[in-house]
Design a protein around this nucleic acid. Sequence first.
DNA 1: GCTATCTGTATCAGAATTTGATATATCAAC
DNA 2: GTTGATATATCAAATTCTGATACAGATAGC
Lengths: 115, 115
Amino acid sequence: MTDPARHLPLSPAVFHLLLALADGDRHGYAIMRDVEARTDGVVKMGPGMLYGSIKRLLADGFIEDAPRRAHDATDERRRYYRLTPDGRELLRREAARLEAAVGLARSRRVLPRKA
Amino acid sequence: MTDPARHLPLSPAVFHLLLALADGDRHGYAIMRDVEARTDGVVKMGPGMLYGSIKRLLADGFIEDAPRRAHDATDERRRYYRLTPDGRELLRREAARLEAAVGLARSRRVLPRKA
DNA sequence: GCTATCTGTATCAGAATTTGATATATCAAC
DNA sequence: GTTGATATATCAAATTCTGATACAGATAGC
């Protein structure tokens, strides 16, 4: 298993890329749309960022190719990806790190105290 | 005022750099120690990252030089920084973004539901 | 006094990442 | 059949990050 700590912290783009795969396999373009929609356009995913990050995550074993889903055999072009167990663990750790960062921001009064 | 949205999202290092200044002025080396301590070493701040980011943040008006504090006039070398109002706003927005990202992670079951 | 280590600021070259454009092709709608 | 959205992919240039280096004052131990 690739040591996850060496890959932390993740860039915002990579975090959201992995997060887009957390609740089901997606192809590249769908990842891109998901990320921009869920972050209200704050995190932008051009094709360079998208396929560059995918290539690296594949090489590091955090995502892998997923078999084409039956219900959209319509579009031949699509290439689907899924999280590996390592990828899910990496994402979980990064999410925990972000949670801690938010807690720090709260304790330093950058964010209001939680209701 | 520099449009804050253009600078979001922040890199983890820059976020923690600003956060280190949120509860009081600090000099470079103290920022470095604060960041590494508060993130348990996950976010590493070498001198390149530190002074490179400081230079950019000064140029963009998110931090500024602070007058030397009276109680440590002992060390002549130190150069203190403080957040500008824009810097504080930028930090607040980034913290809000992280909070939203954590919420997303929770809704996708990457993190357990909040106790 | 001497020396080692820590503190402190700063820059630089090389590596890695990100941006933005470009290329190519399929698909859906009209 | 033409347009625009979908889809994957690569590339050069810009930016950012890493790790080393440099320099010097402070501190602690011997």
